[in-house]
């Protein structure tokens, strides 16, 4: 589904503090599978995730999505791809404070111009699926960590994307909540979604839900299982 060829990514290029976070990555992310990137802090997992999710561009190399080279596309088209094809679950959840759970969930639907009632129906369906219907009107800052993450998952699914990208999804959760997340992940995988995540939590990477684990170190792939 996603093919990365010779990906290199530099920060502060041309300056004294130039730093290469990725040093030649070749990777094929298969469709309808759960792939995990594992590695220590600073290994380049998150940088790779941002490139796959069209949040950043590689300095060198090509990214193809369904056979189409997207690494050279203008920002406008990348945004469109991000909106329609990807759903993001961030480590810090990145919900907008002051807005209700429901308002946060439907935010990615705004630029699509879909009718409000449609967005609300879909959000309610997702909230009910994750047993969070009773918290739909609560401001996100009033929610617990687990509830916030479930809101973030609903938000990632509102536009019904084919690909889900999750950065260290269990980093801010205790073991109980991490297991709950894995159960949700299992359901999402069963729905046939392609999932790419980063983690160094054994609860995630050793789970049977994850089809493939790719190890990373110093901006390079190291093999995996």
């Amino acid at each position: 589904m996603i093919k990365l060829q010779g990906i290199r990514k530099a920060f502060n290029q041309g300056r004294d503090n130039e730093y290469w976070a990725l040093n030649g990555i070749d990777l094929h992310v298969e469709a309808n599978k759960v792939t995990a990137l594992r590695g220590p802090s600073g290994s380049g997992k998150t940088t790779l995730l941002t490139i796959v999710g069209c949040l950043a561009r590689p300095t060198v190399g090509r990214v193809s999505l369904m056979g189409e080279d997207i690494s050279g596309l203008p920002e406008r088209f990348l945004t469109e791809i991000r909106r329609r094809r990807f759903g993001f679950i961030f480590q810090q959840f990145n919900l907008i404070k002051g807005l209700s759970a429901l308002d946060n969930i439907i935010l990615p639907g705004y630029p699509t111009g879909r009718p409000r009632h449609e967005l609300l129906a879909r959000a309610d369906e997702l909230l009910a699926g994750l047993k969070l219907g009773h918290r739909r009107e609560a401001k996100v800052e009033w929610l617990s960590g687990g509830e916030q993450q479930r809101v973030a998952i609903c938000r990632a699914l509102i536009n019904d994307p084919e690909l889900l990208i999750a950065d260290e999804p269990t980093a801010n959760l205790d073991s109980h909540l991490a297991r709950e997340f894995m159960a949700i992940l299992r359901d999402l995988a069963a729905q046939g979604r392609t999932i790419l995540l980063t983690s160094h939590d054994p609860l995630v990477v050793d789970s049977a839900v994850v089809h493939r684990v790719v190890d990373m170190r110093d901006g390079k792939l190291q093999g995996g299982r």
Binding site: L55, T79, E80, R82, F90, N94, L107, P108, P111
Partner: peptide
């Protein structure tokens, strides 16, 4: 940043 990441255009 969040709005852009979740698909809002510049």
């Amino acid at each position: 940043g969040i709005l852009k990441a979740i698909g809002w255009e510049t």
